[in-house]
């Protein structure tokens, strides 16, 4: 009888321990993959810089003069209804183009545990863009959460120099 009681209390003690599975970063990202007009994955040979404007007027740079890129990830705001992104593309002749991309979304608070920082998941509802060097952008997956393996946008650039 004493052994049974000891085993039961030891089990209770062990099961009182709990693990916390908080994600390392509680921000989520949108994934853009570059495609050509034939629908095949492509590489952008031009220099790409992507930034946005913070509420205090300063710039927040996400991609800084990257070349030969096939894919990139951009952060998404927690609770704004739309994010405005500026794509600065410099071609091989050093000519600068700036396109504006606006991503419209719905935001849902996400809860993992009281031990984890608050975060948001999103549903992309639409995208608008200017057409200086960007040909088109299509939404492939509208759900933005901790799954970083899914591509959210296919982006098609116009042929440059």
């Amino acid at each position: 009888m004493r052994k049974i009681v000891f085993v039961i209390f030891a089990s209770l003690l062990l099961c009182a321990c709990s693990t916390i599975d908080c994600p390392l970063l509680n921000t989520v990202y949108t994934v853009y993959n570059i495609y050509n007009s034939n629908g095949k994955a492509d590489t952008l040979k031009d220099t790409l810089t992507i930034f946005s404007r913070r509420v205090n007027g300063t710039d927040s740079v996400f991609i800084n003069q990257d070349v030969n890129i096939k894919t990139f990830s951009l952060p998404i705001s927690y609770s704004a209804p739309a994010d405005t992104l500026y794509f600065n593309i410099k071609d091989t002749l050093k000519k600068n183009y700036i396109d504006t991309v606006v991503v419209m979304k719905e935001n849902t608070p996400h809860f993992e545990s009281v031990d984890c920082n608050p975060s948001y998941f999103h549903k992309i509802t639409g995208v608008k863009w200017t057409k200086n060097r960007i040909d088109s952008i299509t939404i492939k997956n509208s759900t933005v959460n901790y799954d970083a393996t899914k591509e959210h946008f296919h982006i098609y650039f116009k042929s440059g120099n």
Binding site: S60, S79, P118
Partner: peptide
């Protein structure tokens, strides 16, 4: 009910309200 005091978006700087 789950809520958190208002905080700043770390990238854009907006005020974020977290409330369920």
């Amino acid at each position: 009910d789950i809520n958190h005091p208002d905080f700043k978006d770390p990238v854009w700087g907006y005020n974020v309200r977290y409330e369920v």
